[in-house]
Design a protein around this nucleic acid. Structure first.
Length: 433
DNA sequence: AACGCTCCCAACCGCAGACCG
DNA sequence: CCGGTCTGCGGTTGGGAGCGT
């Protein structure tokens, strides 16, 4: 797109006379087709690089930097034009989950695409997603929970101030992370003095359509110095969410586990942040192991997975994750450790990074890392797309794309249908049928 | 038709590292 | 080693297009 000239002291093409253009004020703003032609001719003849000489001798009254950018982003051969394909979009999302804002490195893995293009795409994706999430949250949330929407909305808009009521706040020191003070406005459903919240609403806010199974939607918030837990009040078949509260705000762990406790036995289905889906059925409380589909006894490693500081398990080498039930009391499900799907925060901030060259590396969540990833739209999965108002939490979409990419290497005949019928059950998060 | 608003994206800017004499 | 230049990278800006009123 040839945009208009801005900050341009001498609009229009400025073609240098013989001998160069070094003595004239450098032109800024949009490039003309004449300038493009000159630059292409020069680079074709002399090759890339030495952009200072381009400016000096080719007769383009532009800075060397401007010449280089024009060539790299628009004129060099083999550039792909047009919208990103769905495959490219997924690649970008996955790469961003791994690399963060390393646009140039991402571009190196997307032939024909430039770092600038990818950066612009990502930034507009963020804006789109934020809009969609805000809209969805406001539509879904009941009036009495609206203060959460305030928090979310203000977080998204980068408002450091937040509502005047003080019922929720966005901690400026937390880099805009969403922080909710849940001391007021929530009903005390079971009369024990804790403030209660409809977990369904929380999950709606998190972008999740439904609770898995037939959860009866009541939960209370329990605060400890270390964490805030959304604990189901009743039910043998529960999903337990541990929300950690830190100086950075509130967040949940990065994975998702459905815990089904029945008498003294528990079952888990787990999805980690990179699409590992594992299960464990009817095991006694205590230390247990969740097997993931890529398990090979020879290479598997048992790893402590629960942690107040979420960690990430590299999917290339670690197929076995160990989950510890650190307080094996079936009456106190909140103490069954469960790594969680993070609702609001990690949808914006992936709590880990992935280094495929470092097998079995655990990379602690670094709240200071500028690993700002986002929910994405996945047109391929139109149901999910619609259900989330065009938004799928980043971890979930990352998991989908990762499973799609990695499992065929292990199971050549793999596809979604066989995967879903294989016994590794995804929680009902609106994944493709 | 005019206006205002939002979004996209090309281009710019500042910084840092590599390179070279 | 040092200073200057070149190059690459990531963040930011602002004009044009498109859309709704």
């Amino acid at each position: 797109m040839e945009t208009g000239v801005r900050d341009n002291p001498c609009p229009g093409p400025v073609i240098a006379p013989e001998g160069g253009a070094a003595d004239k004020p450098l032109k800024k703003g949009s490039w003309t087709s004449e300038e493009d032609a000159i630059l292409v001719a020069y680079v074709t003849k002399h090759g890339e690089g030495n952009w200072k000489k381009v400016q000096k001798f080719a007769g383009i009254n532009r800075s060397a930097k401007s010449c280089r950018l024009r060539w790299a982003n628009h004129l060099r051969p083999n550039l792909k034009k047009g919208a990103f394909t769905p495959e490219e979009e997924l690649t970008i999302i996955e790469l961003h989950a791994q690399l963060g804002n390393k646009w140039a490195r991402m571009a190196s893995q997307l032939p024909g695409r430039t770092d600038n293009e990818i950066k612009n795409y990502w930034n507009s994706l963020i804006r789109r997603t934020m809009r969609a999430r805000t809209k969805a949250a406001i539509q879904i949330c009941s009036p009495e929970k609206r203060l959460m929407v305030h928090g979310l909305k203000n977080f998204q808009e980068g408002d450091q101030g937040l509502s005047s009521s003080g019922e929720s706040e966005c901690d400026p020191s937390a880099g805009n992370l969403f922080n909710v003070n849940m001391t007021t406005d929530f009903s005390d459903m079971n009369g024990n003095g804790d403030c209660d919240v409809d977990l369904q609403d929380c999950l709606m806010l998190a972008g999740m359509r439904d609770l898995p199974h037939d959860y009866d939607s009541a939960a209370e918030i329990i605060r400890t110095p270390e964490m805030v837990q959304l604990q189901p009040i009743s039910g043998q078949r529960d999903m337990v969410y541990n929300m950690h509260e830190s100086a950075q705000g509130m967040y949940m762990d990065e994975s998702c586990i459905c815990v089904h406790a029945d008498d003294d036995l528990i079952s888990m289905n787990a999805v980690d942040g990179h699409g590992q889906v594992g299960s464990m059925h009817d095991q006694p409380l205590g230390q247990q192991t969740v097997l993931f589909p890529q398990v090979s006894q020879e290479s598997s490693e048992a790893m402590q997975y629960y942690d107040p500081d979420p960690c990430y398990i590299n999917q290339h080498d670690v197929q076995l994750a160990q989950f510890e039930c650190y307080n094996p009391n079936p009456e106190n499900l909140s103490n069954i450790m469960s790594c969680k799907f993070d609702p609001i925060i990690s949808a914006q901030t992936l709590p880990y990074s992935l280094d495929p060259d470092s097998p079995a590396q655990i990379i602690p969540y670094n709240p200071d890392a500028d690993n700002f990833t986002l929910c994405n739209s996945v047109p391929k999965y139109s149901d999910a797309y619609l259900n989330y108002g065009g938004v799928i939490p980043a971890v979930l979409s990352s998991a989908v794309s990762h499973v799609e990419r990695s499992l065929p290497a292990f199971f050549p005949s793999w596809n979604w249908n066989t995967f879903q019928s294989s016994g590794y059950n995804w929680p009902d998060l609106g994944l493709p049928d």
